[in-house]
């Protein structure tokens, strides 16, 4: 399983420098670490996914001594690992570039992790079920829907989101955190099991 996670790094080894360079650039112009963390984690995870899909890597992987369960599980475990590493890189970079500033660092980390997990929980099963080129269409449709929604229905959606983030970071009650974490974890595990089910029925 570790081999499969390492594989996702090897296939992107040429772009890792690019990822780190742009992270530093964004940090210099003060882009929010939360935004960067979520974006880069999802991009990294999904690039690995679509690289497998574009070639016949699924034929290769399933001809090697791996079970389908392992192939899917490596994606879900890898996602957590990659997000952790990216968070580490971002905050390390942020520390060197902008110095210590944030007081509730761990809450930000938790938020990034949570957002990535929720996003991945939706994207992966859809990508396993359909091709990720369809995912792009779904994404375009969603962005369209999103734009329509904010311009027509909720013009202040951005403000609401910002407020949600602020509220989340300011939450004091541990109980609320517990519920949020539990929901995310359940969603993630549910998505994981669903993806295994979908993948096991696939023909290559």
């Amino acid at each position: 399983m570790v081999n499969l996670i390492l594989k996702d790094i090897i296939i992107q080894k040429n772009t890792i420098i690019f990822y780190i360079a742009t992270i530093i650039l964004y940090l210099l112009v003060d882009v929010s670490p939360i935004f960067l963390g979520v974006l880069y984690s999802v991009v990294f995870i999904m690039t690995a996914f679509s690289t497998d899909e574009k070639g016949n890597a699924n034929i290769l992987l399933n001809s090697l001594p791996y079970t389908r369960k392992e192939v899917v599980s490596s994606k879900y475990m890898g996602a957590l690992l990659f997000t952790s590493v990216i968070i580490f890189i971002i905050y390390l970079g942020d520390f060197f570039l902008n110095g210590m500033g944030e007081v509730f660092l761990w809450r930000e980390i938790l938020l990034i992790m949570g957002l990535v997990m929720v996003t991945i929980s939706f994207i992966l099963p859809i990508s396993y079920k359909f091709k990720s080129k369809h995912l792009l269409m779904i994404l375009v449709a969603l962005v369209g829907l999103y734009l329509v929604t904010i311009t027509i229905l909720i013009p202040n959606l951005h403000d609401i989101l910002r407020e949600f983030v602020q509220n989340f970071l300011a939450l004091q009650e541990t109980q609320m955190y517990f519920v949020a974490i539990l929901t995310t974890v359940i969603l993630y595990i549910g998505s994981w099991l669903l993806s295994i089910r979908i993948y096991e029925r696939k023909a290559f």
């Binding site: 594989k7 090897i10 016949n56």
Partner: peptide, 22 residues
């Protein structure tokens, strides 16, 4: 196989690194 199953951008050495531990 008849079709290509290798990652096109990787070298054979990289492919070995991926396949060997399996």
């Amino acid at each position: 196989y008849d079709e290509n199953i290798f990652y096109e951008n990787l070298t054979l050495k990289d492919m070995k690194r991926i396949i060997k531990p399996a």
